[in-house]
Simulated assay, not measured.
Amino acid sequence: MTDTVERASVGAGLVAPVLSFVGVLLATVVSPSFAWTGNALSDLGGPTGPVATDLTRLLFNGGLISGGVVALGFGYAMFLAARNLVELAGIGLFGLTSLSMALIGVFPLPQDAHFFVAVSFYVLLSLALWVYGAGNFLAGDRTRGGVTVGLGVLNTGAWAVWISTGEFSRPGLALPEVVGAAALAGWTVATALWVRRRLGHAS
């Protein structure tokens, strides 16, 4: 039973990014008028209009909710593979990141809570990567730690460039948004594969 639960938890780490990130990308494809330089990703989950349809809302909001909830299930395997308290702290922040991602879908535009949970997601994402990456360094895993911290810097850097080059709410908000989303998706898959090997479930 324990082995099955561990494998299921690792599987959650592989499935969650597919549900969330691929769901978002598919929503951009099926939207009648979504433009990377003209819209925010959240427009896909908002009220019916030129960008959002019933299908885009299902893919975007549903993908974020299901992906966030499934990602929480990956926390168990991450916990078993943790090597120090700093990695454990990073895992806790990853859980909060996953929860905030799900809440973006629960509170789509134009609900008041949407802005708060969306900002929380991107802030928590960088914090989770930095803390977990620091734990990797402490465990002697310099390469993994460097990449993890670097992805957190990439997410923050994308927002720093966006904020420093114009008005925050200008068209094209999807561009910095997708940087962080892609970083999280890629890191989660890579980490799930690493955790699977560490727990001896690679076969």
Rank of each mutant, 00 (worst) to 15 (best):
Leu138Val: 13
Leu138Cys: 03
Leu138Ala: 12
Gly140Leu: 05
Asp141Gln: 14
Arg142His: 13
Thr143Glu: 12
Thr143Arg: 15
Thr143Asn: 03
Thr143Lys: 11
Arg144Glu: 10
Gly145Ile: 06
Gly146Lys: 01
Gly146Ala: 08
Val147Thr: 11
Val147Arg: 10
Val147His: 09
Val147Lys: 06
Val149Arg: 03
Val149Asp: 12
Gly150Glu: 08
Gly150Ile: 03
Leu151Met: 14
Gly152Asp: 09
Gly152Cys: 10
Gly152Glu: 11
Val153His: 01
Leu154Tyr: 04
Leu154Asn: 03
Asn155Cys: 10
Asn155Arg: 02
Asn155Trp: 02
Thr156Arg: 04
Gly157Tyr: 02
Gly157Ala: 08
Gly157Phe: 01
Ala158Leu: 06
Ala158Cys: 06
Trp159Tyr: 15
Ala160Asp: 09
Ala160Arg: 07
Ala160Gln: 09
Val161Thr: 09
Val161Met: 10
Val161Arg: 08
Val161Cys: 07
Trp162Cys: 04
Trp162Gly: 02
Trp162Ser: 04
Trp162Pro: 01
Ile163Ser: 09
Ser164Cys: 04
Ser164Arg: 09
Ser164Phe: 11
Thr165Leu: 12
Thr165Tyr: 07
Glu167Lys: 00
Glu167Val: 00
Phe168Lys: 02
Ser169Arg: 10
Ser169His: 12
Arg170Asn: 03
Pro171Thr: 01
Pro171Ala: 03
Gly172Val: 09
Gly172Phe: 06
Gly172Lys: 03
Leu173Cys: 05
Ala174Thr: 10
Leu175Asn: 13
Leu175Thr: 15
Pro176Ser: 13
Pro176Gln: 12
Pro176Phe: 04
Val179Asn: 10
Gly180Phe: 05
Ala181Thr: 14
Ala182Lys: 02
Ala182Ser: 15
Ala182Glu: 10
Ala183Trp: 03
Ala183Ile: 11
Ala183Tyr: 05
Ala183Phe: 07
Leu184Trp: 15
Leu184Pro: 08
Leu184Ile: 14
Ala185Met: 03
Ala185Phe: 03
Ala185Asp: 12
Gly186Arg: 08
Trp187Leu: 14
Trp187Ala: 06
Thr188Leu: 14
Thr188Gly: 01
Val189Thr: 12
Val189Ser: 06
Val189Trp: 12
